[in-house]
Simulated scan of single mutants.
Amino acid sequence: MTQVEAGLGIGEVAERTGLSVHALRFYEREGILLAAPARRPGGRRVYTEGDVGWLNLCVVLRASGMPLPVIRRYTELARSGAGNEPERLALLREHEARVVAQIAALSRSLDLVRHKVAVYEDLIGHEPQPAQAPA
């Protein structure tokens, strides 16, 4: 069995990454994949486990607020291979600083929300309720 025959279809990759089929095609057009997927006879895309791993990394980076142009630049650097590690590191450190700042801002927001909840619980005489984690 060849690699193309054994690869993953776009639906399987969508399921495993949480991206829609439309988003996968968009990522391909935008140069977010390390390599264009192979094609089966008939033109259907075939992805590898490596593609799934890369896309999962991109999903996390995107969810953390990394803009698509920065993800594209990171992809270009990774695609070009060894020799640009300092630039990749700088890109990731810049993003890390943005994420840390976002966490600090969210923490301040959460403190304020908790304070307001306590004010209203006192006002209407309710027992404080523990915060619930999302299901």
Rank of each mutant, 00 (worst) to 15 (best):
D111T: 07
A6Q: 15
R62S: 10
A133S: 10
L57T: 09
T75K: 11
L112A: 07
A14N: 04
L8I: 10
L8P: 08
L89E: 14
G42C: 00
P69R: 00
G83I: 01
R79H: 04
N56R: 15
P41D: 15
A38Y: 09
S20C: 04
V60C: 15
D111A: 15
S80Y: 03
V13E: 09
E12P: 11
L34K: 00
R39K: 14
R16Q: 08
T17E: 03
E12S: 07
R29W: 01
P130Q: 12
C58K: 09
V70H: 06
Q102Y: 06
L24I: 02
G53P: 07
E15M: 05
M66F: 01
H126W: 14
Y120C: 14
R25Y: 03
Q3V: 11
R88F: 08
A63M: 04
E85V: 08
C58L: 09
Q102L: 02
L112Q: 08
R98H: 07
N84G: 11
A36P: 10
R62N: 13
A78V: 05
S107T: 08
H95I: 06
R39G: 01
V117E: 07
A38I: 01
Q3I: 10
P86R: 08
R25M: 03
A133T: 05
R62M: 06
L91W: 08
R114N: 13
E49G: 12
G7Q: 09
I124W: 13
A105P: 03
A118F: 04
A101G: 09
I71K: 04
I124G: 12
E15R: 15
G81E: 05
E5P: 06
L92R: 05
A131N: 10
V60R: 15
A101V: 10
L123P: 03
E87M: 02
I103K: 09
E87W: 02
P37A: 00
V4M: 05
G42N: 11
G42T: 01
G11I: 04
A90Q: 15
M1I: 04
L61W: 13
S64M: 04
A133R: 14
R108L: 13
I124P: 07
T75W: 06
E96H: 14
V21G: 00
G65A: 01
E5H: 12
V99K: 07
G43A: 01
L89S: 12
A6R: 15
N84H: 13
V119R: 14
A101I: 11
R93W: 12
A6C: 10
E87V: 01
P128Q: 03
V4I: 15
K116D: 06
A118N: 11
R108K: 12
Y27R: 02
G81Q: 10
Y120K: 12
P37C: 00
A118I: 08
R44A: 14
A90L: 13
A133I: 05
Y47Q: 11
V99R: 07
S64K: 03
N84V: 02
R45K: 12
G43N: 02
A104R: 15
C58F: 06
S20V: 01
V60W: 12
R79K: 14
V117Q: 03
V119L: 10
G18L: 00
D111C: 06
